[in-house]
């Protein structure tokens, strides 16, 4: 998923910011309806540079040097001594994943979820997209810190929403980081904890694949929406989603 720049002479690999479709346009005029050029620079160009540069420095000369951020995050997720590397890999992958599904508002409005996807969303209990959005907003309000929300596909092809605190990844439930046990523990969190405990006890396999990602890190909205602008940002993000990309992430029969 990530493009890496190979330097033939030194035979080293450097993680770099992947080029987005429409990157040049975004750099000069931002993503219409979502980011100004400065906002885009902060959320993508600068932040992705920050992540990939740190990833390069940390993986240089190690077995992870030649791997993509996706491979690195899977490789390091279970290694307790490599969590600093996991952070950059997981963040780089998640951020890229989210930016791939964004487009100008006018183009986004021409796209819509495929019948297949919409059917699965209905199966989750949401009558329409608005209800899914409302649920995402509700989840975002329960997240006190930084994080991500993903719509993921279960092995049985059903969909569910998961919260990932901080640098959590949607690919492996051991590192979803959906529990925030730092302060007071809500009933909701406790239920989730029991669920997780069950999964571990039953040795259940949790293969989820993300379909749609929402970035709730401050980096994603602070330049354009301010420190307290998460709600406004979410609203604009929802109308800048390129559903064609999201549809393509589901396996069509």
């Amino acid at each position: 998923m990530f493009k890496r720049t190979g330097l033939r002479i030194t035979k080293r690999l450097i993680h770099d910011v992947p080029k987005l479709k429409g990157q040049y346009k975004y750099e000069t005029s931002g993503i219409e309806g979502l980011y100004s050029p400065e906002g885009f620079k902060g959320a993508w160009t600068d932040y992705q540079k920050f992540l990939t540069m740190n990833l390069t420095l940390l993986t240089n000369g190690t077995e992870n040097e030649f791997k993509s951020p996706y491979q690195i995050l899977l490789n390091t997720a279970k290694q307790t001594t490599e969590q600093h590397i996991f952070h950059y890999a997981s963040q780089a992958h998640n951020n890229h994943f989210v930016f791939q599904q964004l487009t100008n508002k006018s183009e986004a409005s021409k796209t819509q979820p495929s019948r297949n996807l919409m059917g699965r969303i209905n199966d989750m209990g949401f009558k329409n997209l608005q209800e899914l959005y409302d649920q995402i907003v509700k989840l975002s309000e329960t997240m006190n810190g930084q994080g991500w929300i993903f719509l993921v596909e279960n092995p049985d092809k059903s969909l569910k929403l998961i919260q990932c605190n901080n640098d959590g990844t949607p690919y492996f439930y051991g590192k979803n980081q959906s529990l925030d046990l730092n302060g007071g523990i809500s009933e909701q969190t406790y239920e989730k904890y029991l669920e997780l405990k069950n999964q571990v006890e039953e040795n259940s396999r949790d293969f989820t694949l993300p379909i749609l990602g929402i970035n709730l890190w401050d980096h994603a909205y602070i330049n354009d929406y301010g420190i307290n602008g998460r709600e406004e940002y979410l609203k604009n993000l929802w109308s800048s989603l390129n559903w064609d990309v999201i549809n393509g992430r589901l396996f069509e029969l």
Binding site: N144, G145, N165, D180, L181, N182, G183, G184, I185, E187, Y190, Y193
Partner: peptide, 24 residues
Amino acid sequence: NTYNNGTIDDSLRSNQLYKNQKQK
């Protein structure tokens, strides 16, 4: 370090899972 809405006082923080269990 504390993260998100964590508290430095462990005496406050401890017992929460147990209390949640009892409440349930």
